[in-house]
Design a protein around this nucleic acid. Sequence first.
DNA 1: GAAGCCCACATTTTT
DNA 2: TGTGGGCTTC
Length: 746
Amino acid sequence: MSEYLNQLSESQRQAVEYIDGASLVVAGAGSGKTRVLTYKIAYLLEHGIAPYSILALTFTNKAAREMKSRIAQIVGESEVRRLWMGTFHSIFSRILRRESETIGYSSDFTIYDAQDSKNLIKTIIKEKALDEKLYKPAQIQAQISKVKNALITPELYVQDRELSEYDQLMNRPRTAEIYANYWERCKTAGVMDFDDLLLYTYILFNKHQDIVERYRNMFRFILVDEYQDTNHVQHEIVRQLAAEHQRVCVVGDDAQSIYSFRGANIGNILNFQKIFPETRLFKLEQNYRSTQTIVNAANSLIKKNLKQIPKTIYSKKSVGEKIPIITAYSDFEEGYIVASRIAEMRMLNNYAYSDFAILYRTNAQSRIFEESLRKINIPYRIYGGLSFYQRKEIKDIVSYMRLITNPKDEEALKRIINYPTRGIGDTTVAKIAAAANLHHVSLWQVASNPIAYNLNINSGTAKKLAAFCGMIQSLIDTAHTQDAYELGIAIIKETDFKTELYEDKTPEGLSRVQNIEELLNSLQAFVLARREEGDPNILLGDFLAEISLMTDADTDDAENANRVTMMTIHSAKGLEFKNVFVVGMEEDLFPSEYMSMHPAEIEEERRLFYVAITRAEENAILTYSKSRFRNGQTQTCRPSRFLADIDESFLKGAKPKTERYGEPVAPHTFKILSAPNVSPAKAVSTSSETSSGLSVGDRVRHHRFGVGEVLSLSGADENAKAEVMFDHFGVKNMLLHYAKLEPITP
DNA sequence: GAAGCCCACATTTTT
DNA sequence: TGTGGGCTTC
């Protein structure tokens, strides 16, 4: 029965078999992390833990799906179906739907994607007649997301001194107001954004002892994948559920933490043992993916980071090829070199096209490779860009579905109230929104009862509005008697989508029609699959709940099988290829120019490079160009400092000369048991103190940039300079002679 | 509401 | 460079 345990290495087996308390599995790149997770779940099931009492959280649907199918092979399909296994967002939305009343929502709430959120924020800014230059919707959105992840509700926001100081500093004091309105509008609309799914779960558990108890008792064992990528709320929810019984196993690799810009907190994994003091630590240090050279090169690179859990990753595979660093004179030549290398390697070693990947830091770099590959007829596939569910025609149909499921959904209504065109323009919508805001009701409420809300519209418009609402209402009325697929067909029919789109015979038009058909196909497949599982009546809301949390990574297509893969390094995490080209190894590109000199940010970029290299099984090839066409002009480029971080013995030929950068002195590892707070490591400085009386590490205040920390000091007297990391403005170099820095005592 | 023009802008994005 | 958003114009 436990025969599968023999397929595990000793350290993997130990990690699998420890089920009595908290454990942290530090799983290096290619160390068989998924294998441990899947076998551990199988092991738990075998030891009498019921499937419904296992909670297993992942970040992507893909990861959840893959794990499910692997567990199914061991324990069978029916068991797997009863596991609470899925992404944080999907599992929590399930819980929230069950408990929706407690938090003042209906179980039919719909979900705003990032675009919807941004649109709403933009609307609010416009309604308040604020300057969009100052109140940039994207920035406000990012800030709202950030504070939600930090468990800060609008009520807490206004009380938060630091936040209001920051908003003052940024010249947008009314951010709190926007946030409050956004929050309320979502509530009135019966919608949640992605962050809400986490935050409301936290609030639910925090405010209702009985409910959290229930889930604590239900989830007798909790597993979390990619723990290094969890943000604050996610971490806190795991804590809420696991703190009592402590049966929690988190798996991750601090060296692969690359999502801090999305709120991921590497401290969650570094400090895990502090929160669960009984934690058993397991390290998976054998890499089964890459050659020794690749593993060792990656090790030598990551050693340059200060903050990390000590571990020694090794490979028992062949030594393999050394890593070439190829210099190109232009980005154009870089493309040419990579394309011809691929052709050459394919000929010499019989590789398939799919054995190659080109990884870059920014999507903009893909173009040139696209051209160079196309020129010599190499098939490729580019990841990134618009996902299926973000396409206009799909969002349009989905908006109808959302509106029928939850007519209060503001963004859904706005999107389709005049699409296909039915003479209800922006002015009317603005009037509806104004009345809705005034009475704290949904737009739908006003639109379907214009008289009750004294809506000032002419009779023609009123008629059109009534026709629209009537159509939606009749679809709502049939929603309970039809299954989701039938309803989907009805939507297309009723809304004149056919005439709108099916007439369009341009290639774009045809592809739009195809996309819609694809959506309907997947709807049909969904209904059939659910029915097979014994669910008799599948409603549209069920389908929506599922697809609202899907991304493009979830729609894999078999047709594109044998192609060279092009993607950003971020999206390559978790994947592997025989041969990997990491291109654009240049300063200001990788590490990104947007990263300040702050050591923590450079470390994250270095981890990104680590992720890139460790994708390769057989060959990693690094390229950089001496010049590059960017933002409308040709720039000269210097080779990336990261090239100098790799030990020369793993490289083919000599390293290019890189400048020295003020960075960590001696690499030392992070003691995790006594893990202190994750304060940024201090940079090296040329002198620690100057005549200014300041010293490195001091907190200072600047009249424009607010507070910050002195990173380094240089020069003397009137040339004395300080490098300061401001809390909200990044690193600035300033002449002390001009910049008045006041030291602040903590 | 489509088309055309001008201006600003230029990372990474699991949900 | 090239794209996307906002604006005007027909």
